[in-house]
Design a protein around this nucleic acid. Structure first.
Length: 429
RNA sequence: GUGGACGUAGCUCAGCUGGUAGAGUCCCGGGUUGUGAUCCCGGUUGUCGUGGGUUCGAGUCCCAUCGUCCACCCCA
């Protein structure tokens, strides 16, 4: 035997048995987004490396060490997208969609980050990302959060809670950043190795440290929320008030800072304690400076992304989702003439009953085998066509999910008989 | 990139201080030559992740390597 080719680390197959739960999430999300007036957009998985450098930030971990970057045959540096927002913003600009217009969009697909895989974290993973550009007020922030909350409700997701924070404008964030760096430099000897490294690149992230020995130092640090500019503070308060009015519980987490550079003002994260160390299920925030940074007219923007693998894992934990049967009717044949006629008959049945699903037994097999396949297919009904039925111009109908005896129907009325039998079988379950 | 645990049949796993590779499930055949799921009988599961070493002898001990999982970093 030749050696088998191994799958790529961190890139998983989603098997047919798992698809029911994926489709449940994707369908709910699609319906809900459409119901809120968001339109789908599809953008390439590959972009110029420069796009992510500029959008996400040179010294973020994502850009510095997690991107799948390669030089193509034309000598250009390209990158497999590590997140969705940058590509969608690029598409908006490339297609001249702005010009004072506002857009509510969503985009789904695979993302790629070169990290060590662990529970709920893979090198190819899938997100649904939702973006709104041209909306500057707090109302859109609230709508996006309410949309998430509704989706969790619809999916029956329980163990998630909302945390929010405000980073302020780019300018107030810079001022705060300077204060923080000053404070941290003064206590440099107390910082652990990770935090010392962050101090140079992305000091806000020091606040995120999980090291308990850093806790006291962090608690005593200047608080971001207290250094907000007046407008951002008002914006944030409006968001909080509206969430309260909508009855959506949340916690203000002053240490919530997000890893990508483009965020400003409102940031939020839906987190869970049910997925090991990976607690974020869905997160996002405002990126009011991003479009200008990418060369467009200054335009406010906000968006979030949910991680499908993590949602799938959560839903799988909270109870199995029954996979629907693949077919309604399984057709068993016996004898050379019946076998040949089967193909023709099933095509006619598909014409007559386009909403019913038929599987014709293929590749022969004795009755026992064929009935076993019929049973495994999940079909409610078996249709039996043997040479002696064919001679009499009939087919037999056998319900597979209850102990009712089988009956016969003339071939001329078979479609109607199947429809009736399926309706009866469905009514019983 | 760093740390820990683990790699035995398609799947879930057992295998003692080294002594010729096992169970359940799945699949296939039969009991029922025209009737599934249940039941009974029978059958195939395999370079023990890979390479090397120690030994009369290695699934078992040692080394290396690859892979998986979990965690760190970071994030969805």
């Amino acid at each position: 035997m030749t050696e088998q080719i191994q799958p790529v680390r961190g890139m998983n197959d989603v098997l047919p048995e798992e698809m029911a739960i994926w489709q449940a999430i994707e369908t709910s999300a699609r319906e809900l987004l459409s119901g809120y007036g968001y339109r789908e957009i599809r953008v390439p998985v590959v972009e110029r490396t420069e796009l992510f450098r500029r959008a996400i930030g040179e010294h973020t971990d994502v850009v510095a060490k997690e991107m799948y970057t390669f030089v193509d045959q034309g000598g250009e540096s390209l990158t497999l997208r590590p997140e969705g927002t940058a590509g969608v913003m690029r598409a908006i600009l490339s297609n001249g969609m702005l010009r004072g217009q506002r857009h509510k969009l969503w985009c789904a697909g695979p993302m790629f980050r070169h990290e060590r895989p662990q529970k709920g974290r893979y090198r190819q993973f899938h997100q649904i990302s939702v973006e709104a550009v041209g909306f500057g007020g707090p109302d859109i922030d609230v709508e996006l959060i309410a949309l998430c909350a509704r989706l969790w409700r619809r999916l029956g997701l329980q163990r998630v809670r909302l945390e929010i924070n405000s980073l302020g404008t780019a300018e107030s964030r810079r001022l705060y950043r300077d204060r923080l760096v000053e404070y941290l430099r003064a206590h440099r000897d107390q910082l652990d190795a990770d935090s010392q490294r962050r101090l140079d690149g992305n000091p806000l992230r020091v606040l995120d440290s999980k090291n308990p020995q850093m806790r006291a130092l962090i608690d005593a640090a200047p608080v971001l929320t207290e250094h907000l500019d007046a407008e951002s503070r008002e914006h944030f308060q409006a968001v909080c008030r509206a969430l309260e009015a909508l009855g959506i519980p949340f916690r203000v987490n002053p240490r919530l800072v997000r890893g990508l550079d483009y965020y400003s003002r409102t940031v939020f994260e839906w987190i869970t304690d049910a997925l090991g160390a990976q607690d974020a299920v869905c997160s996002g925030g405002r990126y009011d400076g991003l479009i200008a940074q990418l060369g467009g007219e200054p335009t406010p923007g906000i968006g979030f992304a949910m991680g499908l693998e993590r949602l799938v894992a959560l839903l799988t934990q909270s109870g199995p989702i029954a996979a629907p049967a693949a077919v309604d009717v399984y057709i068993v044949t016996s004898g050379p003439r019946a076998e040949a006629f089967g193909l023709e008959m099933v095509e006619r049945l598909r014409d007559a009953l386009p909403n019913r699903r038929f599987e014709l037994n293929l590749g022969g097999g004795n009755f026992k085998t064929q009935f076993r396949r019929a049973d495994r297919s999940g079909a409610l009904l078996a249709v039996i066509l043997g040479d002696d039925e064919l001679e009499r111009g009939v087919a037999a109908l056998k319900p597979l999910r209850r102990e009712t005896g089988q009956s016969e129907s003339p071939l001329s009325a078979l479609a109607a008989a199947i429809d009736t039998a399926l309706a009866a079988a469905a009514a019983q379950t």
